[in-house]
Design a protein around this nucleic acid. Structure first.
Lengths: 211, 211
DNA sequence: TTGCACACCATTGTATACAATGGTGTGCAA
DNA sequence: TTGCACACCATTGTATACAATGGTGTGCAA
């Protein structure tokens, strides 16, 4: 079975294949993905519900976010990541903790200049942390929020001096989770996300085009 | 313009028009809503993404939740309602507060035996509280969670002795919001939702069929 | 009776014809 | 040149024909 079209379209949108104001016409997408309009329309509808594209008049375009919207999403995410870390401290299994340790070790060996690799393993780490909550609803909410700002997240990790702090935060976080210290795990996660927001704001102040 | 089909289907699903294991075949729905398969399929897909229906094999059926899943959703909701109340205390405008007061007054005049009216205004109150956060992402997350358990929420409000407590909680909550006391508003909301969960658990223990 | 292979057909998945619509460019008036 | 009315057509919306598929019942073997 080939990869479903909505998934391919999703990847392309997240990889910024389409320009911000470029109309995602059904004709263009049927050609690109070699399918008829029906599955293409379904894919567009799905991504619209996920908040990745939006209807602008008749056309569908990649959804962009204002600085205010991004801040808003970050603020919600701080809350959810705090809750997730706190819950993971209580619910994580030995396997969850091992997987997290493995990912952390992997991250410590990465080239801090390779933004793509940083972003990728960082996301894997977060995803595993979410799974460690064993809470389907939390996982769903976090995935939803993450997807909406994924296109923008590469940058904070490569901000000067950020990466070592990220790694140190994760070490502390795993220690707290290992101790089953829910409150501390939550605090670390909240501060971590809050730092990420502050860096984004600083970057925005330095150059508004970075979003 | 007629009401879109996905909206009508959504209302019907939430109103428990369909039995838990009844297949929502496209043929049945095209007849019911007087449209062709294309819009019906779109509606089914939307509701599937919203978590209201699910594919079981080839068929689509109304999604039901196990006790564990409902508890999980409540727990996430406690977190989000706390965050929303805290944020509303900071962000609510005079208009927001007036609308909330109006809804509360309305609720105080309802017949406590009219479960449907209770559920309806209660939802309106929550929705207005969410709006008072002026946070699109929080509102979206809360709407999503609410929808998934909406079919089950009627019952806690009519549980013996519950309604007066609900009203008292809302009075306290609005007072905290009026004072701009973010922490207290959050605490009240969290305890309120946590009480609702406990009542649901008690009901479940008394009669597992109530879900 | 029980278990299984298989064929049928109800149902979903995909492609596409036709209808509806809204965005854009043309041409005319001022 | 500027503003506006209007017609065209690109694009989306809807209906439906045809293809694919999986669930179910039938009949046969043991």
């Amino acid at each position: 079975m080939a990869t479903p079209i909505h998934q391919r379209l999703r990847e392309d949108v997240l990889a910024s294949v389409f320009a911000p104001d470029e109309p995602l016409t059904e004709a263009k997408l049927t050609e690109r993905y070699g399918a008829s309009r029906t599955p293409v329309r379904e894919a567009l509808q799905r991504l619209e519900q996920d908040g990745l594209v939006e209807r602008r008049g008749k056309a569908v375009v990649v959804r962009t976010h204002s600085a205010e919207e991004i801040i808003d999403i970050y603020e919600s995410r701080i809350i959810l990541e705090q809750a997730a870390a706190a819950k993971a401290a209580v619910k994580a299994t030995a396997l969850d903790r091992q997987l997290l340790m493995g990912l952390l070790t992997q991250m410590q060996q990465l080239d801090p200049g390779d933004g793509r690799a940083l972003a990728e393993t960082n996301r894997a780490f977060h995803a595993q942390l979410w799974r460690a909550t064993h809470s389907p609803s939390l996982i769903g909410l976090l995935e939803r929020l993450d997807q909406q700002v994924r296109r923008y997240t590469l940058t904070t990790l490569t901000y000067p001096g950020r990466w070592p702090v990220v790694l140190a935060d994760y070490v502390d976080l795993l220690a707290a989770i290992g101790d089953g210290d829910s409150a501390r795990a939550g605090e670390i996660a909240a501060r971590h996300m809050s730092d990420a927001l502050n860096i984004r704001l600083k970057m925005y102040a330095e150059d508004p085009r970075t979003l």
